[in-house]
Design a protein around this nucleic acid. Structure first.
Length: 471
RNA sequence: GGUCCCAUCGUCUAGAGGCCUAGGACGUAGCCCUCUCAAGGCUAAAACACGGGUUCGAAUCCCGUUGGGACUACCA
């Protein structure tokens, strides 16, 4: 890449909302790039729009980054803390005649835009204040950057390739608002130079901003960083992903019981691939990641595939780690009152039996209920189908066989169970299903002997008796 | 409207001119396994947007058309 400059990349969200799917993917690619090449990953909060930015959203974004385990080496910087720096640079442009005061009001600007639309002309600032350069006017004035109008600007993008823009299409953009706050296209340039960013990896919604920014770099005599514009993430209707497509906040996925590694794995495959491989550890990703394998076209976010990946991560998790991860969900549901009250070794065993049956931690917690709770609520339809009178007798016989058991392992239980089955010339399922309904409340569960072992003799007998006695 | 980007199964993608009878994954359907449900295994249906070139040969290169998206703020 660049032989001389050290690799430094940044994620620069504006705190006007939670960390969303698109932002997280941008952060992830930057993070991977930094980790891959031993560079630095910088977090910079772009809060120059003070009317829309909040401290709560800064916290929310940081929470999201932490949950995804995207650690940064430098920052978070806040642009509102750097306004003096930006103003100095604005002044410099002013002094050099590369920027000018503009007294056009919002209303005037808006009116001229309307007229341009009506006349079918390009909506571009007409540059009327360009002529009246000089000292600061008495009226409120913004400061515009004098955009070069001749020739064209080339963006050499690591993903999109060679992209040309005609300079005459670029307008004199406002770099300092009349209230003294600098604007995005200006501060982003100053910061990326000041923070010695080597590669700007961001969404391709910024591709059109890039030639404007390149002109600002040039006005200062700065060498721009390398650019890499990532394709967008779309909703199912191919429109830009937004709230109406469902959950877009990263933390919403935490609450829905997704594992951060699963979400990271899903996100990285949106626009990037490594042959036919679908599941990657973090180490894999760092090892294999490359901007060269990033695609150019937008990707539709597919919740089904994310769900599948999550199930894969749940299956391959350590039961003990999963038990820890599911605890907040058990507490939230009131299944357990305090985590200290749970035997984690036992819980891990219960979790292990459910791993390949739960796609999210919520599903896991939900199934765990029938292991943990004292009694179980029996599904009405399941009861109608399997708890008929003739089955109650079988349950009673099974209870009699279980009663004297001293060891209550699956193998012991199976012997008792099979004795009843064989005595009546039944099939396994004839007894397994009624027992399953009694013990778990539903017709679907892990293997019945395993369920019984995990529940333990006491709970098993209690639940059987409750049904046999018809309470 | 203008500027820019993009275009392989429904979706994510492999594919860097002959390895393509277009591969994998999710989802869907069927079968196997089986005490249920999963997981797992096998199988199936499913795509190179269209039209012109270039070439002995094009999913791959070029042009156009169409379609989608982004930007077009004193938002970022």
């Amino acid at each position: 890449m660049n032989e001389t400059k050290p690799i430094r990349v940044r994620f620069a969200p504006s705190p006007t909302g939670h960390l969303h799917i698109g932002g997280a993917r941008t952060a992830l690619f930057n993070w991977l790039f930094a980790r891959k090449y031993g560079g630095s990953f910088i977090l910079r909060i772009e809060d120059t729009d003070t009317s829309r930015s909040t401290d709560e959203y800064i916290e929310a974004i940081i929470d999201g980054m932490k949950w995804l385990k995207l650690d940064w080496d430098d920052g978070p910087y806040r642009q509102t803390a750097r306004f003096d720096i930006y103003r100095d640079y604005v002044q410099k442009l002013l002094n050099e005649g590369k920027a000018y005061y503009c007294c056009c009001t919002h209303e005037e600007l808006e009116q001229r835009r309307q007229e341009a639309v009506a006349a079918g002309r390009p909506q571009k600032y007409d540059g009327r204040c360009r002529g009246v350069e000089g000292e600061k006017p008495d009226r409120p004035a913004a400061i515009r950057f004098k955009m070069l109008q001749e020739g064209y600007t080339v963006v050499k993008d690591l993903i999109k390739g060679h992209v040309e823009f005609e300079n005459s299409q670029l307008e004199d953009l406002i770099i300092l608002r009349s209230d003294g706050a600098p604007t995005y296209n200006f501060v982003v340039v100053v910061d990326d130079i000041d923070m010695k960013i080597s590669h700007i990896i961001r969404g391709d919604d910024h591709l059109n901003n890039t030639p404007k920014q390149i002109q600002i770099y040039k006005a200062f005599g700065w060498e721009p960083p390398a650019f890499a514009h990532l394709p967008m993430i779309l909703g199912s209707d191919k429109a830009r992903l937004s709230k109406r497509h469902g959950a877009t906040s990263v933390m919403a996925y935490k609450e829905m019981g997704y594992l951060p590694d699963a979400l990271v794995n899903y996100l990285v495959r949106l626009g990037w691939s490594y042959g036919d491989q679908e599941v990657f550890t973090r180490e894999d990703l760092i090892k294999y990641f490359s901007l060269e394998n990033v695609g150019k076209s937008a990707a539709v976010f597919n919740p089904e595939k994310l769900l599948w990946l999550n199930s894969q991560y749940i299956i391959s998790s350590e039961p003990s780690a999963l038990a820890e991860a599911v605890m907040p969900f058990l507490l939230k549901d009131g299944v357990v009152s305090e985590s200290a009250a749970v035997d984690m070794q036992w819980l891990s065993k219960a979790v292990r039996s459910l791993q390949e049956r739960a796609r999210t931690l919520i599903e896991l917690a939900s199934s765990l209920k029938y292991y943990i709770s004292e009694q179980v609520e029996i599904d009405k339809k399941a009861a109608e189908k399997f708890l008929k009178q003739e089955n109650i007798g079988l349950l009673s016989e099974l209870r009699d066989m279980l009663l004297p058991l001293e060891a209550f392992f699956a193998s012991d239980i199976e012997k008792a169970f099979m004795a009843v089955v064989e005595k009546h010339g039944l099939k396994m399922g004839n007894l397994a299903q009624p027992v399953r309904v009694v013990l778990t409340g539903s017709t679907a569960s892990p293997g019945i002997f395993e369920v019984m072992e995990i529940l333990g003799k006491e709970k098993v007998l209690k639940r059987l008796s409750r049904v046999i006695e018809g309470e």
